[in-house]
Design a protein around this nucleic acid. Structure first.
Lengths: 202, 202, 202, 202
DNA sequence: TATGAATGAGCCTTCATTCAT
DNA sequence: CATGAATGAAGGCTCATTCAT
């Protein structure tokens, strides 16, 4: 099992290396799929031998969990910060979607892996924590839309469907987005919001 | 390799059995994922032994290809029929999305598998045909939106983004839709169209 | 997992082959130890490839469990038959020890494995059944000694110690006994009984 | 390789630590078995890291050898001292068995390990020395019984079988003996001797 | 058609050991 | 003395597939 060292200096070196391993793995997983990527592929890509690799990952599945955490933790944190502000719901929503799309695009690989392995995440008990984070984020979004409607600044033909549509669009983004393309992450985010809100503005 | 019988009576029995095998496999794949479903799982679920199963599937990958074909072929056919009508683009679009969502929901399992294995489909040479069907469908959609804009009946802040948003929403549908739920497939389809079109109507 | 066939003819063939696999494995385990014998050693010795071997064993540990069962089941059966007779305790005891030593010597390999892996058997939950058989046999022996004392035909300075001594001697036998040696199994059995009983006869 | 320090003060500290490592290892080996105990288990139990541990053990196998030596060396020494006395054989035998049982019980863990790994000890060349000590002890016992018979004070139905029985009983003792139980080590030793000798006394 | 025994490459992981620090 | 990162061979096991029956 991967037991990180306790002495601060070593701990830092360990964490740094672990992050590069995670990034390399996320990229491979995104390209070939988690299942089709063997530990052999990972050793080759990281330059570590099998044993050395396991120093940092614990197991192939724990590696996947860590990748998902690296995706969800900062996203949740940002989202919570945004909804904690005093801004009106529509402003919060647009800010949140911008942050979300930006995050998703900076973590394209993580996100692709997350989506590909979604059926695993939703079914297996060892994924409960990750699942919980996904649910927390969606709940937060939902409540934001709800507050917007209650405040009268947002209105949806069907709030639930709007939420699902937004989730779909943002989650799907990494499948086509290429950095440096025609649209910036911000433009994409604003475009999504416009689709959601334009027809229903007061 | 699966060599279907030629005499009509036998052929029919063979096809019937093959369809049940496909349906069973699609369900398992949707639940556990294609990779995590072993041929052993398939034998158990179908009641056939390994050898018997291979009469109907050829190989595990051919089975997956057939599932994708079963999803894409009738969809493409319907879509082509719709765009071949004389209706104005907006009407065609709404009809197409209705047909599409209905199809996707009747083939939930197929669709979930298709999405899960998307990275394989997009990368491997032996998936060229399936990939071509997906592209043809998207092209057809794109051209429909384009015609709508040229006709002046549809307008999008960003046509490409609208297309991607629509693809995202419909493709994501099987992940949450449960038959008999609050919304019918038609309502869902109309809801998606409204999101896409409402803000931009003349 | 090893799923034995259900059709009688095939089942018989399966069982026959499984027994030869068990015998081969028991011999290897006895010589090199369970842990030091790799599955590779087993494939080599059985002539089966890895997959074929697993058809019959389920897992390396299940193989070990089966070996222990093959040792304990017939022994317990014989012992129960003997104590169910009308013979006086001393006669039953001598008969039981004879049967026991004979069995142990016909299953030298099984017995050596059983003794070597005893710490596993006594500690791990998945060994509860095997453990139960061992305990049942010892209990049966203990009760036999007890009945002998109550009947007045046997007397021990310390019954518990006598029982432990007998267990020790018989269990240790496969470590030195070679068939065709100076002593027959029967002579060995009688020798053990004499040590136990001679000093204490009425 | 473990190179102990030469300066006396350091050497003493080194030896003290080494003895605690040996004791810890013996206990773990006795509980889980030598093979099933990983060096990782040892580092955890000793509180040393891998490198530090290797200063004291040289290798996992050398550690096992040391444990066996710690068991056999003082035992052989005591036994040789006893047979060098002028006492008659029966007295020597009883004294030896007492010392032996006491030793075995003070080194329960060592003894359990020794017995578990017996097949290794008996087969591998690097175990020649340990094997030699075991043989020397048994030879010494055998000669003692022989002298007793020649002197006419001991008589056995079968001397060889008596010897084997005695070995079996004492070696088996650590599997059931718990300090503070109903019987003291001395009582156990005397019990064994009685079984061996009572039936055959003049 | 259908069975199930058999293959064998490949998988994930463990582990005793070494060595730079 | 001690750490812990790193090695790499070996381990047990799975699985898509084939084939004699």
């Amino acid at each position: 099992m991967a037991v990180p060292p306790t002495r601060p200096a070593l701990r830092e070196r360990y964490d740094r290396k672990q992050r590069t391993v995670l990034a390399t793995a996320a990229q491979l997983f995104a390209q070939r799929g988690y299942q089709r990527t063997s530990v052999g592929d990972l050793t080759e890509a990281t330059g570590l031998a099998a044993g050395g690799l396991y120093h940092y990952i614990g197991s192939k599945e724990q590696l996947l969990i860590r990748i998902c955490d690296e995706l969800m933790d900062p996203l949740l944190e940002q989202a919570e910060a945004i909804v904690a502000t005093d801004e009106p719901p529509e402003v919060q929503l647009r800010a949140l979607v911008r942050a979300w799309v930006a995050h998703v695009e900076q973590h394209r690989h993580h996100m692709l892996v997350f989506q590909q392995e979604r059926h695993t995440i939703e079914r297996e008990p060892q994924w409960r924590l990750v699942r919980g984070k996904r649910k927390a984020f969606e709940r937060l979004l939902e409540q934001l839309l709800e507050r917007g409607e209650q405040a009268g600044t947002l209105r949806f033909a069907d709030r639930q469907l709007a939420l699902l549509g937004l989730l779909a669009m943002v989650n799907y983004t990494p499948q086509w987005y290429r950095p440096g393309g025609r649209l910036s992450a911000q433009q994409v985010a604003d475009g999504y919001c416009d689709l959601l809100l334009d027809g229903h503005r007061a």
